[in-house]
Design a protein around this nucleic acid. Structure first.
Lengths: 329, 329
DNA sequence: GTGAAAGCGCTAACAG
DNA sequence: CTGTTAGCGCTTTCAC
C-alpha cells in the first residue's frame, strides 16, 4: 500500500536512482537497454513520480493554475475547454479553481496555486483588484482573460468589449429603436468597456444613454428586468451586458407580459450556449472563447519560458450573432 | 524575487526554524511573544509556506481533488458549490479538474491528483470504469457522487435514480399519457437506474416501455428529439434522462412544430438552473446537489481521517418539480 | 552512459 | 517552550 519510490524502481532494475530520474523525464542520454529495464521495473511496481517531490527539487512543475470567476456562467467552461486543449498540447497540466464571483476568493485561489508551485496562473473573468493583481504577478506569471488592464506585469487576452458594446447598440439602433437601455455588469470583467461602447454609440446617434446597474448573473438580470418592465413606458430595446443576465431579463419581461421581440428587443453578450438554446434564441455578441483560452495559454507559456520583458495585450474582434430576440421596430 | 523560506523567517525573528514551523501550523505550544515575533517576521518578508515541501514532509496535504465530469452541464457546478463550502469549513482546500465527458481523461485527472498528493478525491458524475475505480481507490480515498456502485472500497453519494425515474414516469402516466418514451443517458452516471425506474413504472401500469439511447448532452437530446418528432405519430410524452438533453429535445420538438405541453409533455432530470429558466420552465426531477456535495465531503473526510473499514453508500430521495412542460392529455 | 552526493523547504520526533 | 536532527522523493551538478 505504501507507494513505490524511485529508489525502489532503481533497485528492481538494478540501476541507479539518477538513471531512473533521467528516464522518467524522457532524457535521451540513456542507453536503450537501460531505459527498457527502468520502464519495465516502473511498470511492474506501478511506480508514479511524486509531484510534490519533483516540484520541490526542480524549479518547474509543468502545471498551470486556471481560476474561473464563476462556474455557473457557461462562458467560463468554454474558455476552460480552450485552455485545457492548448495546455495539454504543450505538455502542461492544468489545475482549476473557482473564484465564486468574489475577488477575495479569487485572490486566495491564486495564492494557493502559487504556494503549490505552479509555473503560471490564468485568471478568467478576474474580479480581483488590480493592485493585488500586480502584486501577485510579481510572484508568478499571470495572464488575465476577459479583463482589460494597462499593466506591464500582467498579460491579457480580451475581446474588444468597447467595440462589442457598440456593435450591440448599433444593431439595435439600426433596427429603428431609440429608447435603448443598457443593463450593465457592475464590477464584472469587461463591463465598463461594454458600457462605454453603448454610451458612445448612443451619443453618436444623438440618443440619450441610460444605464441600469446590475451584475453578470441571472438573478441580477431578473431584478433589473423587473424594474424596466414595471415602468409605465418600458424601453424599446435592452442591451444586457452578458447572456446570463439577459436570460434573467427575458424571464422578467415574460412575467410582465411583454413580448420579445414584438414589444421590445433584447441583445446579450458572450454568445454562450445559453443564447443558442432554441427557446431562448438570444441575439448576442460573440467572443471566441476557445481561441481566447488557447491564446492565453500561449501568452502565458511564452512568459514562463522566455522571460519576455514587457506585457502583451491581445484583443480579438467580437461579432454579432443575430437570433430571435431582436427585430425592427 | 526569490521566495523567502522558513529559514529566512526564523533568522529575521531571531528564532529557530522549528519554532516557525509550529507557529505556521497553529500549534499552541508556542509562547505568545514568540508567536508574535514569528508572525511579524513572516508578514515583513511576505512569507508563505511552500506546499510542495509541506506535502513531501508530512503525510497530509489538507487538499482534496474534485473531478467534474462535464463543466458544461450546470449540474456539476452546483455540486461543486456544496463541495467547496463543506471543504472550506473543514479546513480543506479543493482543486478541480474536468473529465471532459471522457472516462480516460477522468482517470488521468484522478491520477494527477494522486501524484500531487491530495488526501482524497471526489468524483462527480464518474464515467470511469469500475475496475479502474477500484484500483484507484486502493491508492487514495475516493467518494463518487452521482453514480451507483456496489464497491466496498469506494463511498458513494447518490440520489435514488430508480425512484426518480419512477417519479417522472408516474407523473406522466398520472397526467393521462400512455405512449411515453424515455430518452436515456447512455453511459452517463445514474442513467441505467433512471431507465429501470421508467421501465418498471411503465410495466406496473401495463404500458410498453420504449427507450431511445442518447447521452447527457444537449446535442444528443437534439438528435434523439428529432427522431421522435419526425415520426408519423410522435409519442404523447417524453421522459429525458437529464435537463441538458431535455433542452435539446425541446429545441427539436419546436423545430418540428410540435407544441409543449399541448402536443406532448416533457420531463427532465436534475432540476438544474436550466430547468428554471422562464422560457424553458421544464418539469424536472430534483436532486439536491448542494447537499450531495456536502455529504460527499463529509464521507470522504471520514474515510481520510478515521480509516473507516467498510464503504458507505448514501442515497437521498429525489422529488418532482412541476413546471410548464408537462400537462394532462 | 552511469553513479555519488548535495540539497529543494518543510515536518516530526527527540532532547534539552 | 525551544533548538537539533533526520529525512520526505526527486532533480541536478559533477566526476567516473
Amino acid at each position: 500500500m505504501t507507494k513505490p519510490t524511485m529508489e525502489d524502481v532503481a533497485r528492481t532494475a538494478g540501476l541507479s536512482r539518477a538513471l531512473v530520474s533521467l528516464v522518467m523525464r524522457g532524457s535521451d542520454k540513456v542507453s536503450d537497454s537501460s531505459r527498457e529495464r527502468v520502464l519495465a521495473a516502473a511498470a511492474e511496481l506501478g511506480y508514479r513520480p511524486n509531484l510534490a517531490a519533483r516540484h520541490l527539487a526542480s524549479k518547474r512543475s509543468l502545471t498551470i493554475g486556471l481560476v474561473l470567476n464563476d462556474l455557473h456562467n457557461p462562458f467560463f467552461p468554454e474558455v476552460a475547454d480552450g485552455v485545457h486543449a492548448a495546455a495539454t498540447e504543450a505538455g502542461y497540466h492544468v489545475l482549476m479553481n473557482s473564484g465564486f464571483l468574489r475577488g477575495a476568493l479569487e485572490r486566495e485561489a491564486v495564492e494557493s496555486f502559487i504556494d503549490l508551485g505552479v509555473d503560471g496562473v490564468l485568471l478568467a473573468g478576474a474580479r480581483i483588484g488590480s493592485s493585488d493583481l500586480e502584486h501577485l504577478a510579481s510572484r508568478v506569471p499571470i495572464t488575465v482573460i476577459g479583463r482589460h488592464l494597462r499593466s506591464t506585469a500582467v498579460d491579457t487576452v480580451n475581446n474588444d468589449d468597447l467595440a462589442g458594446g457598440r456593435l450591440a447598440t448599433e444593431h439595435l439602433i439600426g433596427l429603428g429603436h431609440r429608447r435603448i437601455v443598457h443593463i450593465d455588469g457592475g464590477q464584472g470583467a469587461g463591463s465598463s468597456q461594454r458600457r462605454s461602447g453603448y454610451s458612445a454609440a448612443m451619443r453618436d446617434h444623438e440618443l440619450e444613454p441610460e444605464v441600469i446597474s446590475a451584475q453578470f448573473t441571472e438573478e441580477a438580470g431578473l431584478r433589473a428586468g423587473r424594474r424596466l418592465a414595471g415602468r409605465p413606458r418600458p424601453p424599446e430595446a435592452i442591451f444586457v451586458a452578458n447572456d446570463l443576465a439577459a436570460v434573467g431579463v427575458l424571464g422578467a419581461l415574460a412575467d410582465h407580459g411583454l413580448r420579445v421581440p414584438d414589444d421590445l428587443s433584447v441583445v446579450g453578450y458572450d454568445n454562450t450556449s445559453l443564447a443558442g438554446i432554441h427557446h431562448i434564441s438570444l441575439t448576442s455578441v460573440d467572443q471566441d472563447r476557445q481561441t481566447m483560452g488557447r491564446l492565453a495559454v500561449e501568452v502565458l507559456l511564452e512568459r514562463i519560458g522566455g522571460g519576455r520583458r514587457g506585457a502583451v495585450h491581445h484583443v480579438i474582434a467580437p461579432s454579432l450573432v443575430r437570433r430571435s430576440t431582436s427585430a425592427p421596430r
